[in-house]
Amino acid sequence: MVTGPAPPAPVPKVSARGLGVRFHGVPALSGVDLDVAPREILGIIGPAGSGKTSFLRAINRMDEFIPGMEIEGSLSLDGRDVRRFRNLYALRRRVGVVFPLPVGLPLSVYDNVALSPRLSGVRGKDELDGIVEKCLRRAALWDEVRDRLDTLGSLLSGGQQQRLTIARALSQSPDLLLLDEFSIAVDPVTTMRIEDVLRELREEVTIILVTNLVQQARRVADRTAFFLTGEMVEVGPTEALFEGGARDPRTTDYIEGRFG
């Protein structure tokens, strides 16, 4: 396995060493050594079943939610082992997640975005209003829903719900944003808009973008990692990888669509 160039920052945002994930004893991912620098966008590409989603789930400690899921090796967030977080809720609050299919909770648009701040104790109407507007603006949804913040989030269109999900993930002011194939249920135009949003967000947030669209990684990611059948084949600067600089022939094959 080839590891990418050392990231510039002294303490990586996310650092995995020998990371593995098993479901009921069956390995889904193993031996991943990977660092994610603060405020970079890391793209993860790879065919189905390559362990991309398992990697995200390990970061967010979703093993607590999924029976039979085990994490091995080490995985740290800001230098702190995620498995040593005694307060899992505090860990998850720092990590925003966007799932493949949009999950508009059966609450109003406003309440969807205000849920996380409210859970952490924000009560003031003005403050909440401010957070809701800011997050919806950053998710490029504000102009479409400003007049109907009271409608149910689950009644929005698929693309709008996915942006609502992003707004919701941002409402907890995460310093790490995980996106799992967010564009599956979204039309190309909305996908482009969300990609613009991600590029802007890079100023403040570290983003890990799992995608099944190779070109999406090329458009958005600073570095790209290629996962295949539970292993990380390689990671490198996106441009180098896509300009024929991949060290492993399998990566080139996948990027050029020769298998997958």
């Binding site: 967010n60 979703m62 939610f65 809720y89 505090a90 860990l91 998850r92 609050r93 720092r94 990590v95 925003g96 997640v97 799932f99 999950v103 909770l105 849920l115 996380s116 859970l119 952490s120 999900t165 919701r168 993930a169 907890q172």
Partner: peptide, 8 residues
Amino acid sequence: EAAEAMGA
């Protein structure tokens, strides 16, 4: 899952 991921 979505709510848990938000730290609820």
